[in-house]
Computed example of a mutant assay.
Amino acid sequence: MQPPEDITARRLNARFGAAPAEAALAVALDRYEGRIALVSSFGAEAAVLLHMLSRIDPSVPVLLLDTRLLFPETLAYQQELSAHLGLRQVRRITPDERADPDRSLHRRDSTACCALRKVAPLQAALKGFDAVITGRKRFQTGQRAAMARFEHDGMRLKINPLADWTAQQIAAYFETYALPRHPLVAQGFPLIGCAPCTSRVADGEESRAGRWRGEARQECGIHFGPDGKVERAG
């Protein structure tokens, strides 16, 4: 027998899996009012989902994983975009750095660094929330290609309103609503993570080539475990 949470995700997918992104987001916000948060990197594409949220309920908590290794431009963009959209509850989630006081772990083991600076802080921050909204899209990585709009990770419902969106739709939305861009996009960074593990992408390279360059990984671990399956907290 399927757990009740999995049945909920399946039923929501049946009804809203192909609905417009705004409709899926609105359903989730209504169903989990007071128990839902949005996780955002405030990266290159983040403004689209944050704009949708601001038009429905700008008081919903928005969690930014401030790893202490972010580009200064990202922190400045977070403030600019939050003010532009009127977001009322942006929370910076920071890691316990006692295991990496000199911030050099990424040079020895980038996966362990992500676990310390992203996975553990996010799991702690999401306690008390029954649902979480992400900006993931199927086109981004192979691991996301079959991602459902609604899924359950063993602890809470995960909503991916933009799951079926294309890069072209993202670009068009930016233009339609004149959303401010992350300043590093114009400098050759189509995707933006932590500064030590993000590099410029040359013409002809795949957009994720600048993330963990030279490593055989595509995910930081907050959504998928090392086996490529949905991360099951705890």
Rank of each mutant, 00 (worst) to 15 (best):
A18G: 14
A83Q: 06
A172V: 09
F42S: 04
A9I: 01
Q218N: 06
A14M: 11
H51V: 08
D96K: 01
G128K: 03
A21S: 09
P226D: 08
E45F: 14
A209V: 11
R117Q: 01
S59D: 09
L85E: 02
M147G: 01
S82H: 07
S82I: 10
D164M: 07
E73G: 14
G225Q: 02
A76D: 05
R107W: 12
R213I: 06
R10I: 03
K127R: 13
Y77F: 14
V230T: 15
R11T: 10
S40V: 15
R107H: 14
R68I: 12
R138V: 11
L25I: 07
V132S: 04
P3T: 13
L122P: 00
R35C: 05
T166I: 13
L105H: 02
C113F: 03
R88H: 11
L85D: 00
A124I: 02
R98I: 07
E175C: 10
V230R: 12
R10D: 12
A37P: 03
A148W: 05
I7E: 09
A21Q: 03
D227A: 14
M147L: 15
V62Q: 00
L157A: 13
A163I: 06
V60C: 12
V62K: 03
S104M: 14
V62G: 10
V132A: 11
A14H: 09
A172W: 00
A125H: 01
H182K: 07
R144S: 15
E80G: 12
